[in-house]
Amino acid sequence: MTDASRYMGLPSRYQRPSALAFLGYAAAIVIILWSFAGAGFSIDKVISSPPRFADFIVRAFPPNLDPKVLARLGWKMLETLQIALAGAVIGIILSVPIALLAARGLIAPTWINQIVRTALGFIRAVPDIAWALVFVVAVGLGPFAGMLAIAIDTIGFCGRFFADDMEAADKGPSESLTATGARKLDVVACATIPAAMPAFISTSLFATEKAVRSSTILGLVGAGGIGIELKVGFDLFDYPTAMTVILMIAVVVISIEYLSGWARTKIIGEQR
């Protein structure tokens, strides 16, 4: 109270919510509780799961370190990385022309921007594993289906963010090149893309990390890579091998994240 009397204009620390805001909060709480119910949340299972989880751990340890198994899994891991890299590179390259069409005020009229952005939104809305299922049907089982799934997933991601990067790029150089009488395409190639390049590199590295993470589970639906070993391990109750696979994936994914972070500072950090 003394606060308020000394500084008349000072707003109170907590503002009482309006009736509408209050209804909003109440609705949010109801929806969250309802979601727990829908997810089959059960205290019983929470209480009984630690012992079962411990049971899995006990049966999975020690992980299968048989050299022959390790060699087989190593080759599968390599295939996984190849799927990720090939898919990501194709996706990143195709994303550039697609992003040019998606970026507002660049080379395409607004209605084309809208169509392309909507299509990219659709691609992102479909999960990568669903794309893998689609491509398994289209081109058959194997890593090629996985690579296509990664490529299209990357286009959904990079197409959108490349477009945003180009829209955010400094307009000065492109205005100056427009003033020389250059064509739109030349202006984009000479001013807009170079200006957006650090952002492109950063986005591409994220896309590659994402591709590696996705590629490890594509095997679950027969689209190549190490995921199949995980599935077989669990199906045959061969938990030690499954554990080896999980640890391997963890090590590879963490290394890739570290590597891409290093590359990011190396390429972009130095240029600034």
């Binding site: 000065g172 205005e175 003033a179 020389t180 000479c190 170079p194 200006a195």
Partner: peptide, 18 residues
């Protein structure tokens, strides 16, 4: 028309990475 003109803008507007 612009090809026969030259513009020096208020900001230099060079393409930085080139």
């Amino acid at each position: 028309m612009r090809a026969q003109m030259g513009l020096v803008s208020q900001k230099h507007n060079l393409v930085p990475r080139l």
